[in-house]
Write a protein that binds this DNA or RNA. Structure first.
Lengths: 177, 177
DNA sequence: GTTGCCATGTAAGGTGTTACATGATTTA
DNA sequence: TAAATCATGTAACACCTTACATGGCAAC
């Protein structure tokens, strides 16, 4: 369901093609996405069916034909309603915690190898997101408040990784003692 | 996939029925689960098919028939391999962040109402998990190290909610200024 | 001439969720 | 006597992911 409102959100900003959306998804830190465009195109078809968007086919002389999607009044109002709906709790699904729960069968070195792998992964992600925020590729920045909100959203994601990093480092240190 | 290894993990502890697993799922803080037993029973059938578990039907005089599942050698070795496999990154899916990204269309009071709802939800969850840890219902506690690992796993989940709470409070405070 | 970018999609499979279904025993 | 607990499952659907498929243009 999230992908639906993410797309409506971007379209509330300006008309876009599926390909534009794909790039925005890649460049937006807080969007979880598999990396495959499949979902985007399917969701666009569905949104069109629900009359939340319209599309215009644009034949280009150099380059492939594009479908430019524009949000409708109905789409805008549905987005507005969703934005105000009761928030869901974050889904904290960390399969590493499940791995760890049954990791006492490992020897000290094996366990530390596992922990180190996780630490390194988290570290890399953390650095990546910091870079990402610095580059600040996607930002509607229509108002001061919106810029602030987007900045806080990035901070939320970055902080999650930093807390995770601190946690795994404590764990490794305390197990070493 | 996680549910598979979660079940194998619990079965590595001792033989259990689907119903036992259901209760363990409810009482275990780091397990994400929809609340419906469907997945458990389906996974048990699949595990049996893969010969990772065996089952024994037990007819009881008072009470319904139970199927007691026991992990096999093959199951134990598959669990061990999985435990040592390269950890996945946590999936941070927080649809509230997406809501917030398009929330600049709201007036100051509307926005604060939304933020307050989220704060309250997170707060309640945070308290719940604290209580949960205090009660400490599920804990294999076979070794000191295992007890420590399980404690750190709980802390990880609890800390996530606490950081989220701190973040949303900062956000509300700074927007109020 | 091969890689990367622009631009669109289909097919199939896996995972997760909601709703439904049954029936006995124990507790309030 | 109504609700909760014990104990098992089916059916259908929604959602998500992986892999496959096409084809022109630009840059190196």
């Amino acid at each position: 369901m999230n992908i639906k409102y993410t797309i409506l959100g971007f379209l509330s900003w300006r008309p876009l093609t599926g390909y534009d959306l794909k790039k925005l998804f890649i460049d937006t830190i807080f969007i979880y996405w598999s990396g495959n465009n499949n979902q985007i195109y399917r969701t666009l078809v569905q949104l069109h069916h629900e009359k939340l968007v319209t599309n215009e086919v644009q034949h280009q002389e150099n380059g492939p034909t594009r479908k430019i999607y524009t949000i409708t009044e109905k789409g805008l109002s549905e987005l507005r309603i969703w934005v105000q709906s009761t928030p869901e709790l974050p889904q904290l699904r960390n399969s590493f915690l499940i791995q760890l729960a049954w990791a006492d069968q490992l020897g000290p070195e094996e366990l530390d190898t596992l922990l180190k792998k996780y630490e390194d992964e988290i570290h890399v992600q953390s650095l990546m997101y910091h870079e990402h925020k610095k580059r600040n590729l996607v930002n509607p920045a229509r108002t001061k408040r919106e810029t602030y909100l987007w900045s806080m959203i990035s901070d939320n994601v970055i902080a999650s990784y930093e807390h995770e990093l601190a946690w795994i480092r404590t764990l490794r240190k305390e197990l070493g003692e």
